[in-house]
Design a protein around this nucleic acid. Sequence first.
RNA 1: CGAGGAGGAAAAGGUGAUCGCGGCGUCGCUUGCACGGCGUCGAGGAAAGUCCGGGCUCCACAGGGCAGGGUGCUGGCGCAGGCCAGUCGGGGUGACUCGAAGGAAAGUGCCACAGAGAACAGACCGCCUGUGUUCGCACAGGUAAGGGUGAAACGGUGUGGUAAGAGCGCACCGGGGACCUGGCGACAGGGACCGCAUGGUAAACCCCAUCUGGAGCAAGGCCGAGUAGGGAUAGAUCCAACCUUCGGGGAGGAUCAGGGGCUGCCCGUCCCGUCCCGGGUAGAGCUGCGUAGAAGAAUGAUCAUCACCUGGGGGAGGCAACGAACUCAGGGACAGAACCCGGCUUACGACCUCUCUCGGCCG
RNA 2: UGGGGCGUCGGCAAGUGGUAAGCCAUCGGUUUUUGGUACCGACAUUCGUAGGUUCGAUCCCUACCGCCCCAG
Length: 130
Amino acid sequence: MKPEGFPRYCRIRRRPEFLRVQGRGTRVHTRHFLVFATRRRSQANSGDGTRGDELAPTRIGVTVTRKVGNAVRRNRIKRLVREAFRRRRSDFPPGWDMVWIAKRGATEVVFSDVLSGMHVVSRKLGDRRR
RNA sequence: CGAGGAGGAAAAGGUGAUCGCGGCGUCGCUUGCACGGCGUCGAGGAAAGUCCGGGCUCCACAGGGCAGGGUGCUGGCGCAGGCCAGUCGGGGUGACUCGAAGGAAAGUGCCACAGAGAACAGACCGCCUGUGUUCGCACAGGUAAGGGUGAAACGGUGUGGUAAGAGCGCACCGGGGACCUGGCGACAGGGACCGCAUGGUAAACCCCAUCUGGAGCAAGGCCGAGUAGGGAUAGAUCCAACCUUCGGGGAGGAUCAGGGGCUGCCCGUCCCGUCCCGGGUAGAGCUGCGUAGAAGAAUGAUCAUCACCUGGGGGAGGCAACGAACUCAGGGACAGAACCCGGCUUACGACCUCUCUCGGCCG
RNA sequence: UGGGGCGUCGGCAAGUGGUAAGCCAUCGGUUUUUGGUACCGACAUUCGUAGGUUCGAUCCCUACCGCCCCAG
């Protein structure tokens, strides 16, 4: 697999999964985002026999509501978050699910802001793991 | 040079590098999923608003009418509330632009306040005549010029006329208007004659003309666990005399034919199990679905460089208005396909092209 | 996708062709030693925006803007 790729299985795609992470995850605030994170349940990946001993990959989901901006701005925010996660995926410990929710001022965000936010979140998750 | 008007074209500015994303095809690899390599395709003029219409799909339907709803100058085209050309009216110095622009003698409603009077007119202050008079005025009649109110007062101005006045007469203006001319038509021009005869509102009800089934891709079709429901629970498989229209039929035989309750056994009945049935739910299932195309929804990020625009500096050139090279700073809009298509509306920085108008400066 | 509703002072809101009620809040005053209460007074240039119909528009019509709800 590509070292900086971003395949489908690294994304959270079902609404119940989003609700699970937002309901019981730990919160991290950045300037433009509210981040929920929780550990993935173990049986989610146990069906695959070949890599059963490995930890599941960390996944991400992005929520941008219509209050943040029009469709172009919402799309751009989601792309920036996904791009930053793709670049910094090796910094995160495995086995986590994250949901990034854009705050109201996230329209003015630039790529370096998202990168620094990724740094903050990955360090907090690493601390919690030890 | 500046400011505008109309039509058209085009609009993530171009190129490169690195890392990525979605669909399809192909190979690794083995049938699928997943992963990796390669190839190829991958947002707009408005994709937006959802204001109209069509395709497509399902439902309803003999035929006709009413009701309801839409539209409303004329001609042409169109499936369309659209487009093109014209008429009339409003706006603009102009190029040009905007207009739900049918009907008020078919009927009904409404026109607040003010005002005498607001719709088959009427008389408050006035003016005039007559009578009476306590000389303040009162009554009867005529009149509608003047005052006042209002958005609107039943033609306007002038003059003659009169007791005072009045289209009562006349001149001009306005209005109606048989008819004539031009035009397919809306309409335009003229107009004998009529003293003038009927205010507004239909984006109030309404009348007239014309059009009009209802719902929508979450339409519709297909697959379909589980649960509930209905049915079956005694036959199934194999061998085979014999008959045969050679397709088949078939006495007979062998093996296997679940468990439990009522009840010890048989019948019966009930429950569980097994098998079958059709409808249908979850399954963001498959399809509908596209030479972009899903169902957390792809087309991106960073860097370099070139070009463009705006402002400042700069000054080649030019009689002048003006202004090239170079340099510094800033900028690149509106906006993201979700069944497809046509039209409309709205948002929008800069550029290109054609044409026109107005203004300023210089020669 | 289809359908419906709302927008009026800082807040809650009435008014639905005739020139914008009321309550709370705010401000000023009276009463009180002071505060509260009570009373009096003030408080809408444009009724979301822009056009239109009308003598006259919050009201009627059209187009936009924003918010909310319903059905599958």
